[in-house]
């Protein structure tokens, strides 16, 4: 018996469709007049790594929350693997900013990572031995095995961030949306996470990283979406960026 949480699990999605497609999307927060996103058109090709750049408040988090279906849109359309938002939830993993989570909650790191399996389990079913093996592997890949039984509040900021990425791995999603994953983390975490994102790319996953600083993947992104005040100011592939005379200058003003 399988009772999914919400939406049906469409599996017959178009295999050639982009991982994420925003077409003229507008978003307004409830009780606000101002558009949080305005006429945003963007696309993440299957298997690409996309950087979502822009200063704080430019709409990066809003962009990701729309893609995952946490915020309704006023206009335009959003497609995930060619399907409407909310129909392929198990295929998208969302890694929120660390501040969104109550780290004092009495739960171990392993149980936190195991919540990545919930979308596959649905109501009433408990993780099987296979699920637990997937969870333990994800924990190991992010170098957290020794900390698996720690209460999540006793982890450092970098370890917490790695735990969240481990959960995204445990979910076995095809599209990963990472909100400032390298913000205020230690060097070891930065290295492990950067390598993990490379591994995901090698495995054919699509990764979208919202960031407001230079990171180690800077020269590896396949595309850059630059947001400012809720609108796209630049959307280009870095491969062609070298042809642009201002490429170096625009990189610098990101920081």
């Amino acid at each position: 018996m399988h009772l999914p949480y919400g939406g049906s699990r469409h599996t017959e999605s178009d295999t050639t469709a982009p991982a994420l497609m925003f077409d003229d999307v507008c978003v307004t927060y409830p009780g606000s007049q101002r558009h949080a996103l305005c006429n945003v058109t963007a696309c993440a090709q299957l298997g690409s790594r996309v950087a979502l750049l822009g200063p704080n408040g430019s709409g990066k988090s809003t962009f990701l929350k729309v893609a995952i279906g946490l915020l309704p849109i006023d206009g335009g359309s959003v497609r995930v693997f060619g399907q409407p938002v909310g129909t392929a939830m198990h295929r998208i993993a969302f890694l929120a900013q660390r501040s969104e989570i109550d780290w004092r909650f009495p739960i171990s790191l392993r149980r936190l990572v195991a919540t990545g399996r919930h979308v596959h389990l649905g109501w009433l079913r408990q993780p099987s031995r296979g699920d637990i093996a997937i969870v333990d592997l994800a924990i190991e890949r992010l170098g957290l095995t020794d900390l698996a039984d720690r209460q999540i509040g006793q982890l450092s900021g970098g370890q917490q961030q790695r735990a969240l990425l481990a959960r995204a791995l445990a979910q076995e999603a095809d599209l990963l949306l990472l909100d400032e994953p390298l913000n205020a983390v230690d060097a070891a975490t930065r290295d492990i996470m950067t390598q993990t994102i490379r591994d995901l790319h090698a495995a054919g996953k699509t990764v979208i990283v919202a960031t407001h600083l230079h990171d180690d993947l800077e020269f590896e992104y396949d595309a850059i979406i630059r947001l400012s005040a809720g609108t796209i100011v630049q959307d280009r592939a870095p491969a062609t960026a070298s042809a642009l005379p201002v490429a170096g200058a625009t990189r610098k003003d990101v920081a």
Partner: peptide
């Protein structure tokens, strides 16, 4: 007991819960 994993998740990380369709 039956809703333990759902109560846990929505208690410490409601945003992720919503993202996987758990209201």
């Amino acid at each position: 007991v039956a809703l333990r994993k759902e109560f846990e998740l929505t208690s410490f990380d409601p945003l992720y819960a919503e993202a996987i369709g758990l209201k």
